[in-house]
């Protein structure tokens, strides 16, 4: 297993945002994490990425215990996160954003990676020296993903990549996710667009109120007609 999360609990003060969640990710898998607002999906990703300290439980990456490591150490270990709301550096140019993404990569290898990103994200190539704050929502999302890819991660986590995008751009983002999967990358994606996510995911986990309620293959879950109830209304799963 590439990533093993075991009984992870994370608290904000007295609030348990994540209660005893366990999941595994194998190499090459595309995993969907779905669930309503406040279910703890972002907390889960942030804890794995090292932004939050778990109260109990463990995170193992490539067999090694990495629980509680700082975010930059997690990145060096091979875990990259595309954070919620993208959080691109709006005052920096597109290429500077990418260079920051590749800050852990030796300088010599950074330039070829930039070329690779230019090829993968043609929209960005034309705006190389534009301040990132002037990008449209779709472009900014692609930049956020490209920036995370610059570190050559073995596991790429994305938090709500389609949030706030027009439907046509949602398509672009999903095409990109599929493309990255087809390149053999390992992905964990938090998505509100559950139906779309289940179409493409190898496996998916549904979270509610900080707990894992269902897991299964994308096809299995997508076929359940009580999904809406499970998903938002909290009916029995």
């Amino acid at each position: 297993m590439l990533l093993e999360v075991d009984n992870l609990t994370t608290q904000y003060g007295s609030i348990a945002a994540l209660r005893s969640v366990s999941l595994t990710v194998a190499e090459g898998e595309l995993i969907g994490l779905i669930g309503p607002n406040g279910a703890g999906k972002t907390t889960l990703l942030n804890t794995v990425a090292g932004l939050l300290e778990p109260a109990t439980g463990s995170v193992r990456f490539k067999g090694e215990d990495v629980t509680g490591r700082a975010p930059d150490a997690m990145l060096r270990a091979g875990v990259a996160l595309v954070p919620e709301h993208r959080r691109i550096f709006v005052d920096l140019t597109v290429v500077e954003n990418l260079r920051i993404g590749g800050v852990t990569v030796p300088a010599k290898e950074r330039e070829p990676l930039l070329d690779e990103m230019a090829e993968l994200f043609p929209v960005l190539r034309d705006k190389w020296t534009t301040q990132a704050g002037f990008l449209s929502g779709g472009e900014a999302q692609q930049l956020a993903i490209a920036r995370a890819l610059m570190s050559r991660p073995q596991l790429l986590m994305m938090d709500e990549p389609s949030l706030g995008l027009a439907p046509i751009l949602v398509d672009v983002v999903f095409d990109l996710i599929v493309k990255l999967r087809d390149q053999g990358r390992t992905l964990v994606v938090v998505e509100q667009n559950a139906a779309r996510m289940l179409e493409v995911a190898d496996r998916a986990y549904v979270l509610r109120s900080g707990e894992l309620v269902v897991e299964g293959t994308g096809a299995e879950l997508g076929a359940r007609d009580d999904l809406f109830k499970t998903f938002v209304a909290g009916g029995d799963a």
Partner: peptide, 18 residues
Amino acid sequence: IQADPAVQAAYLGSAANT
């Protein structure tokens, strides 16, 4: 509201290329 297909689609997303 719960029965409204538009609401369900908004929550779950719609299948590709509607």
